[in-house]
Amino acid sequence: MVEVLYFAWVRERIGLAKEHVETSAATVADLVAELAAREDRYAAAFADTSALRVALDQELSEFDAPLAGVREVAFFPPMTGG
């Protein structure tokens, strides 16, 4: 099980800030495919993963990264700090 967090417009589109997800997905991309297949709001949020970034246990990562041992996955748009 992983904790999945959503930020900015990803959070708004899905309508949730975080949720527990039971998954056996091997990679981030597999998890995205599982989530996108759930409901339209998820499909809309994950329609274009090139517009998204992912962090695994609070470290920026990639969509082809493995999920083994990961406790927290966060999806968000490119950051706009500063």
Partner: peptide, 19 residues
């Protein structure tokens, strides 16, 4: 900070808001 710190700005206007 601009593109690697996890902040997201939303602009709030009278007629709506945009990321």
């Amino acid at each position: 900070l601009k593109s690697r710190a996890p902040f997201w700005k939303k602009e709030i206007r009278a007629d709506g808001s945009t990321w």
